[in-house]
Amino acid sequence: MSRLLCIDDEEVLHAFQQGDRNAYELIYDKYWAILYRHARKMLQNDEEAKDVVQEVFVMFWLKAQDTSIHVPLAAFLYTATRNKILDQIKHSKVKAKYMTSLKNEMENQVQPPDTLVRQRDLAYQIELEIKALPAKMREIFELSRKEYRTHKEISEYLNISDKTVKKQISNALHILKAKLGPLLIFFLLLSTTW
């Protein structure tokens, strides 16, 4: 490491800007740990700090010919890292604010008066179609979708193979999709009300 500290930044930057890949590697080796420690201190997160430093070095690589890159390299890279961290923090705050706003909007959203009636009707239609399935298929399907059992649990419970369970569930979904349509099958798979 002490050898790296003795490298003249101006010379190695010039070599890098002339396309010398080894010069880039020298810069990377010399400054990565320093920038990582700085990013880690600001972000309090190892992975985020690594990501930020990686992004800084990618930017540095892509801007090799850019005249805005100057010595001292430590100051340039430190500033680039700080700016990247500030952008990330700002983005996180905007994202958090948006998610809070969206959550509040969804919680305060008034549903049309007939929503509950339509949901009940839909659940009733689905239940009728499930009851119309062949007996063994219906039993397997209900164990999967109503009791939330895994294929393995169902196969052990009914003393049949996993492959049979998977095939029966697939067949049941195929039949229900054909009868109920894609939107209703979507409701069927996600709903916990039936």
Rank of each mutant, 00 (worst) to 15 (best):
R21D: 14
N104F: 03
A96M: 05
E147F: 09
K63D: 09
A49D: 11
Q119E: 00
L73V: 09
A75S: 14
R82N: 07
L188N: 02
I89V: 06
Y28T: 06
A132T: 07
K163T: 15
Y124F: 01
H70E: 08
E48M: 10
E153A: 13
L143E: 01
S170D: 06
K166I: 00
L102S: 11
I34L: 11
K177Q: 13
E147H: 09
R120Q: 00
E11P: 09
D9A: 04
E10V: 08
L128V: 04
V53M: 03
M59P: 03
E127Q: 04
E147L: 02
N108T: 06
E48T: 09
L180F: 01
A64K: 15
Q65C: 06
N159D: 12
K84W: 04
V117T: 01
M137H: 14
L43P: 10
K177N: 14
F186M: 09
K103W: 01
L26T: 15
I140Q: 00
I7W: 02
S161D: 11
S144C: 09
S144I: 04
F57T: 13
P112H: 04
V53P: 10
A123M: 00
A132V: 07
P134M: 02
L183T: 08
K63P: 10
F186N: 13
A74W: 12
R40G: 05
Q88D: 10
W32C: 11
I34P: 04
F60C: 05
K152P: 08
D46C: 09
S2M: 06
N83Y: 04
I27F: 03
T115I: 00
D121I: 00
P182F: 07
R138L: 01
I27E: 03
D162S: 12
F16E: 06
Q44H: 15
Q17T: 06
C6P: 03
Y28C: 11
A80L: 08
K103V: 07
L62P: 06
A96E: 15
A132K: 07
E10F: 04
L143P: 03
T81N: 01
W61D: 11
D46G: 12
V53H: 11
V52A: 10
R145I: 04
L143K: 10
N171L: 03
Q88A: 07
K163Y: 14
Y28V: 05
E11A: 14
R149W: 03
F16R: 08
S92C: 05
R21W: 13
S2R: 10
N159E: 12
A172C: 05
K152D: 15
L176Q: 03
N108W: 06
H151N: 13
